[in-house]
Design a protein around this nucleic acid. Structure first.
Lengths: 414, 414
DNA sequence: CTGAAAGCGCTTACAG
DNA sequence: CTGAAAGCGCTTACAG
């Protein structure tokens, strides 16, 4: 009886939850035997196992997760570090992680990166590290990228990244470290989809302390040094998706396609921007300057106002659906009809996009699948026994709706 | 050296994080003294405190949260139980909770109630209880309401509820339990907003084991037996907000207002439905049957199609903005102009609502403020020292935009 | 197959 | 003001 937590109250009901000692007493065995039973240890006589199980049931025993974590050093917990929890993509990734974590009996915590400043990010990473378990960081923005970089090497982490550090290609297994398994890039269908690189298991880290491990060695033998360092990651091929969307707009007859960009995770140009640019180049279309947007509709609205002033603009690709919503609104305010005069396409296929007027042509991305894949990867790093089942993430898919069509019959440009 | 966690690696760097014993050795004191320093205990000689602090800094010591939780029984953690993490209201409440929790150095976990079936809900509550700390349950739907009801009495929990169990009114302090403080209902401004009832602190629970504690005794002395039982809760006054929105539509000249409902948290009619009905009654307007919707735009679309067929319908209030989006789309498909022929109003003021065409008249609700308030309340229950600062949640506010206007000059009804 | 010991990293009384 | 002891509820070797 420690005073602050008496075992019983006046009515004689147990107050403090039953411990393995309570179960042991009830079953007439030592508490070590109870431990064996709850851990599925094979060497327990069936009859005593029965008695223990009965006692567990009777007392409503639940193993104390805190004590388990302290004694064993493992914690069956994952915390998600992210700059945002409400935008469609972020929220869906979080949802996918939670789903998979729940299925694996992991608890999931979240930590929001409110600032992208280095000290604040470091503090948030520390906080997450303090709670124990593994980390998943959504590195779609500068705060996330910095957080991923600030994770101490000994912590198990997987990044959800915008672009892998190295061009995707088959892994080169390093003979020097035979114990480090390497998951080859997996592609579902023809198109590149997402690639899982399995990081080195903690036990083998010491064999390959250099920044770019074997999993990061690209096709051509060059060593990548991207934002995600040597940590395992998952991603969707945004570049490819933007490429397809731009080609679709071009195929409708537009001379070129303007682009309203989401903020990039790094100083360099984003994957979506790259894909858009590539399609333009291949088609020999003029390449307008991308308009910088934000994440929300307000940014799209501002960008749309500027674009609406230029009569030469007949097609606009937006970095996400919220941006597209703002663009649509700005075009409406400017009296330019969609898709009659201007075509608009988005990115993500957020839940509201199908119900807009006009409904939005966009690219569907499987964010929840991405979240599940991220967890599966982390799970594999955390538990030797957990096998990383190939976790399919569906390929980005162009969804054609009302907001994009052929350009005006008689071009408005002089 | 336990084998699975050696203190050092080959290069001589510390692998295992520093413990208070390491700090004690470095500072030349006992580890109990280190404990005193990190806990801000007053009786430590300034000079030794200095030395300890220096050692802490040098070793990069961070107190192990798991050990702290096990030894002290307190855990500075909150887990949020919710049926959904992506809808605007739910996601925003979660955001508010996380914000406040982070400021208080609490970790936040989430558990999704995927099913509303009793066994699944109970299992999820158990899982959340296992992780330790306090609970916040979003009880806007049957799954959440059941979860709130399934929380064991000894666990600290606050509910975010649709409607308080009893009509809001001043608390009746119970002289029999003088130690149980009771926070009086707080109103910001004229309109009812949200009320915080502070539950009994754990230490005093035994004095009032009856289901309805003093905090639940309503104005008239009747004892409430609502969905949230005797737990503290927070809420926004949806009834009042729906009442105002309906009155606004009526004031525009509509003969009556149709209603597309979100699912209710209980079998009884929802707070929003009640407010709508009350406004109609007061105005002597005919009361159409509410159309049952879901949470998303698809439900609104289905409801909108039916309402579009009835030429007598000139005004539609929707249970949330996503529903309104679907209704808007259905009206457009049916060739009925908004607001020319039909007026539409939503609920929530989701981020996209201002950018729709027509932009949506709606009621702005402060969900993040509600989340912060929920955490503040829990914090007060968890820590004697934590003072529950009056945590203002802004009053629901009608936002008038383009989607609602006067009815057609010549009524379309026969 | 099962029990007794030591330990995970802390805190909380209890001594001095 | 500071140290030595016992304990939180488990697990992991170590005996038998």
């Amino acid at each position: 009886m420690t005073g602050h937590n008496p075992g019983m109250n006046v009515t004689g009901h147990t107050r403090r939850p039953a411990s393995i000692r309570d179960v042991a007493t009830a079953a007439g065995v030592s508490y070590q035997t109870v431990s064996r039973v709850i851990n599925g240890h094979p060497s327990v006589k069936p009859s005593t196992r029965e008695r223990v199980l009965a006692a567990i049931d009777e007392l409503g025993f639940r193993r104390n997760a805190t004590a388990l974590a302290l004694a064993s050093g493992r914690s069956r917990a994952v915390t998600v570090l992210t700059a945002n929890t409400t935008h469609y993509g972020y929220a869906s990734i979080l949802q996918g992680i939670e789903e998979a974590a729940r299925a694996a009996a992991y608890s999931v915590g979240i930590g929001v990166l409110e600032s992208a400043e280095e000290p604040a990010v470091a503090a948030e990473v520390q906080r997450a590290a303090d709670t124990g378990g593994g980390l998943i960081v959504i590195a779609y923005d500068p705060a996330g990228v910095r957080a991923l970089g600030a994770v101490p090497a000994e912590l198990p982490v997987v990044g959800v990244v915008e672009t892998p550090a190295s061009p995707p290609g088959p892994c080169h297994h390093t003979p020097a470290c035979p114990a480090a398994p390497c998951t080859h890039s997996r592609r579902a269908g023809r198109k590149p989809e997402y690639i899982q690189y399995e990081g080195l298991r903690p036990a083998h880290r010491e064999h390959a302390p250099d920044a770019a491990g074997p999993a990061l060695r690209a096709d051509d033998g060059s060593v990548a040094a991207g934002p995600s360092g040597d940590r395992p990651w998952v991603w969707t091929d945004d570049r490819e998706a933007a490429y397809e969307a731009t080609r679709h707009l071009l195929s409708l007859g537009h001379e070129t396609v303007h682009y309203v960009a989401i903020p990039s995770s790094t100083r360099r140009t984003s994957a979506r921007t790259t894909g858009w640019r590539q399609a333009l180049k291949e088609a020999g279309a003029p390449e307008p300057r991308p308009v910088q947007g934000s994440w929300g509709p307000a940014g799209g609205h501002a960008a749309g106002r500027r674009l609406a002033e230029d009569p030469a603009v007949t097609a606009i690709l937006c970095g996400n659906d919220d941006l597209a919503l703002g663009v649509l609104r700005a075009l409406h305010e400017a009296g330019r009809s969609v898709p009659g005069e201007v075509s608009v396409a988005g990115f993500d296929d957020a839940p509201h996009s199908a119900y807009l007027t006009p409904s939005l042509t966009t690219v569907r991305l499987d964010f929840t699948g991405l979240g599940r894949a991220a967890f599966a990867l982390l799970h594999g790093v955390l538990e030797e026994s957990a096998q990383i089942a190939p976790h399919p993430v569906s390929v980005p898919e162009l969804v054609v709706r009302e907001s994009a069509g052929p350009p005006p019959a008689r071009p408005t440009r002089p």
